[in-house]
Amino acid sequence: MERVEKFLKEAGTYYLATVEGDQPRVRPFGTAHIIDGKLYIQTGKSKDVSKQIHKNPKVEVCAFKDGQWLRVAGELVSDDRREIKQAMLDAYPSLQNMYSADDDNTEVLYFKNAVATFSSFTDAPETIKFS
């Protein structure tokens, strides 16, 4: 899981795919942080992406850097604990202009039943599972 977090952070931007009805939706994200042994991301509850995740928690992210890409497929689970929100905001201080651990909008979610696959054009894929 640490390798996955490191890759996502070094890539800077990754793309999160959700489903809205029968339509895939993809958008850029930038948060990835391990807290209490779980890989978390952050968004706002008012955003469509949050509504899509709550309707169907199965998502996939994809990031690319240095000729290698990472896909992480799994389910996202919301964690509404204040200390988890604050830990994410501490890891990403630029978010503190838009979010607060005490607002009703900040949402942190962790991956459950995740499968991460590292791929490139030259090497065989490598898969890592974490719950």
Rank of each mutant, 00 (worst) to 15 (best):
P28C: 11
P28N: 09
D102Y: 10
L95F: 12
E126N: 04
S78E: 14
R71L: 10
V77F: 02
V19F: 02
T127H: 10
L89W: 03
T117P: 03
G37P: 08
I84M: 01
Y40R: 04
V72I: 08
A101W: 02
M98F: 13
N56K: 13
K58H: 15
D103F: 07
E107R: 06
N56M: 11
L70K: 00
P125Q: 11
I84S: 02
E2M: 11
K9C: 10
N97L: 12
K85F: 07
V19Y: 00
V26S: 06
W69H: 12
F7E: 06
A116L: 06
V59A: 04
A17D: 04
K112N: 05
S131E: 14
D66R: 15
A11F: 04
P24R: 11
T13I: 12
N97V: 15
L95E: 12
D104P: 05
T13Y: 12
G37R: 05
T127N: 03
P125D: 06
V49D: 09
S46G: 00
S119N: 14
K6G: 04
P28I: 08
H33V: 01
V49T: 09
R27E: 08
T13S: 09
Q23H: 12
L76P: 00
R71E: 07
K129C: 12
V4D: 01
C62K: 05
G44E: 13
T117W: 03
A63L: 06
G44T: 07
I35F: 15
F64R: 01
S131M: 14
N113Y: 14
D79Y: 02
V26C: 03
G12D: 06
S120R: 07
E5K: 11
N113S: 14
I35A: 11
V19R: 01
Y14N: 00
Q96G: 00
A17P: 08
F7G: 01
D36M: 05
G12Q: 08
I128H: 03
G74P: 05
F64D: 07
P57S: 12
Y14M: 07
L89I: 09
A114Y: 00
S78H: 11
K6Q: 15
N97A: 15
F111M: 03
S94W: 14
N97I: 13
C62E: 00
G21Q: 11
G21D: 06
D79C: 13
R82Y: 11
D123E: 15
A32H: 00
L95P: 02
S100M: 02
Q23Y: 10
G67Q: 11
E10S: 12
K85D: 03
M88W: 02
P57I: 01
L39D: 00
T13E: 10
D79V: 05
M98E: 15
G37E: 12
G44Y: 08
V77Q: 05
Y15V: 07
P93D: 11
A116N: 01
L70F: 02
L8G: 01
D102T: 14
A114V: 02
T117F: 06
S50L: 08
S100E: 04
P93L: 01
A17C: 13
K47G: 07
G67R: 10
S120D: 14
